[in-house]
């Protein structure tokens, strides 16, 4: 009973906030609706018993990705009129994407209800009482170790690539020498003088 209520609550909020994400006039509001959608998706994950994925969804997407999103969107000076003007131009393409996604979902649901696919090697069934993290960890670090590390490598390369593409040495920058700052003592910068009467201080 309470599961059903929770499911319909989370599902309804996900759909509603997803719809509001694309219709919101203000980009910051759009990102906030997106965050609400993430959050309720995490709630749905908890309902199916995938608490680890749910927490990961909140930590990674809500806590890191969406913050950076918000960061960028808040800094942008968005011209709303210009944003609206593009709507008609992209409506056709957007509609095509929407139709394609809807078709894919329908095919997916059809395939799912037709029965499971027969794989040559299947993931080992996991005992009911094993926590999510243990089950996921024991698969990721044994059977799927190379795939997992490969994925990590791809991400590392992507990160280094992004840094290489955007980082440029500008001439004339004066980077801080932190060691010098830390080593500096009051004696290096100040001087205690006692000038005689009638004489100034030499700097």
């Amino acid at each position: 009973m309470i599961q059903a209520i929770a499911f319909y609550l989370f599902a309804a909020v996900v759909l509603l906030s997803a719809a509001l994400t694309i219709t919101a006039r203000n980009p910051v509001h759009a990102v906030l609706w997106l965050i609400l959608a993430f959050f309720n998706a995490a709630g749905l994950m908890v309902l199916v018993g995938a608490e680890f994925i749910a927490m990961l969804l909140v930590i990674v997407y809500v806590g890191a990705v969406a913050v950076l999103f918000l960061f960028v969107v808040m800094m942008m000076d968005v011209d709303f009129a210009q944003l609206r003007a593009g709507f008609a131009r992209y409506a056709v393409i957007g509609l095509a994407f929407a139709v394609a996604l809807a078709a894919e979902i329908m095919i997916g649901v059809g395939a799912y209800s037709a029965g499971a696919i027969q794989l040559a090697r299947r993931a080992a069934p996991v005992a009911e009482n094993v926590p999510n993290i243990v089950a996921l960890g024991s698969l990721l670090y044994t059977r799927y170790l190379f795939v997992f590390e490969g994925a990590g490598l791809v991400l590392l390369v992507a990160m280094i690539g992004a840094i290489v593409l955007t980082h440029r040495e500008r001439a004339g920058t004066r980077p801080q020498n932190v060691t010098r700052q830390v080593m500096r003592r009051p004696g290096d910068a100040t001087r205690n003088v006692k000038p005689a009467v009638g004489q100034g201080v030499e700097l």
């Binding site: 680890f52 930590i59 806590g63 993290i133």
Partner: peptide
Amino acid sequence: INVGLLYVLAASSLGVY
């Protein structure tokens, strides 16, 4: 909950909002 510490991290990451 099994993921107590992750829950803590998740909630603390929300604090920035």
